[in-house]
């Protein structure tokens, strides 16, 4: 049984949205979980967060950026093509409860995994303040979805082409300063809402920065870690991360962890472990596609 691609489109340059037929995964998927996918028998196994799911239709939606060989190959597939293996839903679901006021931060591709979490938190009765950031307005995506999923939405762009000119951390800092945190989650005497929880998903540098901003305010902050994975079910340890000085497997103990306890430096250095091989694979892939183009007859 292989997994058919039902829909695929490029949302912004090199960022793709793909809807896949995966009924067993869709039936049980919860916000915060991921799948491990292998395109074909030569492929590597890679984790991708489930950005959306429809249990009735039996479909899951994935968002991915073209970075290396596998994501480039994934980008070249079209509706009607199949993916050999999709295993999931993996990882622990995001904790969805009535916390009060939750700030959901999505940086870059991180907007995709934050979306179902924001939506579920809003359904659970939380006031959801979302902050989504991109380098530039032309690579921002899913603004409509995030609007619907949130009580309030803030946008940031590095170049100022939309929303706040700056970083997601600027907005988070502002929100925390203006809603003085009170451990009972009550509004302070000025009627501002206190922030009960922050969830941040995006590149490790961004998650680390958000953690740095929230720490002095003592607000519980959760991040979703993205280490390299192979099996995704706890049998190999490729995804080891250090949280509070203890080694955890992101695939079964996470992927969400207390941001203030995560060793981001270790995470980032472990993510770089295969850079030479990734480059080699990409070069081989580019060479062979150039070769194919060169072999095509010119009229």
């Amino acid at each position: 049984m292989s997994f058919t691609i039902l829909q695929k489109r490029e949302l912004v340059p090199t960022l793709h949205q793909m809807e896949i037929n995966a009924p067993r995964v869709a039936r049980k998927a919860m916000p915060g979980q991921f799948v491990i996918l292998r395109i074909d028998e030569y492929g590597e196994r890679i984790p991708l967060t489930i950005a959306d799911f429809d249990a009735q239709a039996g479909t899951i939606t994935l968002i991915f950026q073209e970075i290396g060989k596998t994501t480039r190959q994934l980008a070249s597939l079209a509706a009607g093509d199949s993916i050999a293996d999709v295993a999931g839903p993996l990882g622990n679901p995001s904790a969805i409860e009535k916390f009060g006021t939750v700030v959901c931060v999505g940086g870059g591709v991180g907007i995709a995994p934050i979306f179902p979490i924001a939506r579920a938190l809003k359904s659970a009765g939380n006031r959801v303040i979302s902050v989504i950031g991109a380098r530039s307005a032309d690579i921002l995506f899913w603004e409509d979805r995030m609007n619907e999923a949130s009580s309030e939405l803030y946008i940031t762009t590095d170049d100022g082409t939309k929303g706040h000119h700056g970083f997601v951390t600027d907005v988070v800092q502002n929100l925390l300063e203006h809603g003085e945190h009170d451990e009972h989650g009550e509004h302070d005497e000025h009627g501002e809402r206190a922030i009960d929880r922050v969830i941040a998903i995006g590149p490790p540098v961004m998650m680390r920065a958000v953690a740095g901003v929230t720490k002095p305010f003592g607000v519980r902050t959760v991040v979703s870690l993205n280490p390299i994975m192979v099996d995704g079910t706890g049998m190999c340890g490729a995804c080891r991360v250090l949280v509070g000085g203890v080694t955890k497997f992101a695939c079964v103990d996470g992927p969400e962890f207390d941001a203030h306890e995560v060793d981001f430096t270790l995470l980032m250095s472990r993510l770089a472990m295969y850079l030479p091989e990734e480059k080699e694979a990409l070069d081989c892939d580019l060479r062979s596609s150039v070769g194919e183009a060169a072999a095509e007859p010119t009229v």
Binding site: M1, R24, V25, R27, K28, D85, A87, G88, P89, L90
Partner: peptide
């Protein structure tokens, strides 16, 4: 034989 089927997750 159902592959890619993680019991404890799908069922």
């Amino acid at each position: 034989i159902c592959l890619n089927s993680v019991i404890g997750k799908i069922d």
